[in-house]
Amino acid sequence: MKPVFKRIIFFGIILSLWELGARLGLWTEIILPAPSKVIVSLYSGIENMTLLYDLLASFRRLAVGLAIALILGTSIGVLIAKSKTADDTIGSSLLAFQSVPSIVWLPLAMMWFGLNDKAVIFVVVLGGTFVMALNVRTGIKNVPPLYIRAAQTMGAKGLDLFIRVVFPASIPYFVTGSRLAWAFAWRALIAGELLTTGPGLGYTLRYASDFGDMSMVIGVMIIIGAIGAIVDQLIFQRIEKSVAKRWGLSS
């Protein structure tokens, strides 16, 4: 049997049992509403446009935050790859920063920027920057020395060598860095939105929770999960694969 059929049957069974349990009243609706209720909630949210506005608002914050994170991360990555002093100082603290979930910066961010978009964007930036910087550093340090020697015999040196050889040679790591930065930024964004004001997917999730609208809570959870999976698998993993192939990193 094809994997896709196995998956359909698997999820079909889970959803049927879930629906059946809810209809039979094995648990109260506030604990876990039936899948059909979730679908109704999602449908009405999309029909009256509120979920679409949330999605738009969340994506706007994400786009700004991720763009800053990628630029900042790349700059830091290049700096610590090229300067030993920068690597010994900034570089060594990156791993420590990276292991702190960026949402813990939110209380400070709210003091600095107020309870608004900027605080959330700040958390998103922190979520993506460090992992991007670490990957860019690895990419630049792993450029095959043979490429550099070959380019030198063809007269390339200095900035010209960096732009035409070192930078393109490390693109596979840039792509991986961007994919991970996106993943961290997406999580940071939702966490930040849960704790601040709307509109936004995270805000709607908390709002629904405050009013005991569990079918909407689950609906938003599904949207968050679906977007995460789609962007990762349909966009980033595809780019990563085709880049790896052309760069000769996979057969």
């Binding site: 043979l146 015999t153 007269g155 760069w247």
Partner: peptide, 19 residues
Amino acid sequence: KPGKDRGMVFQQAALFPWI
């Protein structure tokens, strides 16, 4: 230092895969 008066061919082709 290296110069364009001397072209070099290595054991591996060392072509740039992105172009």
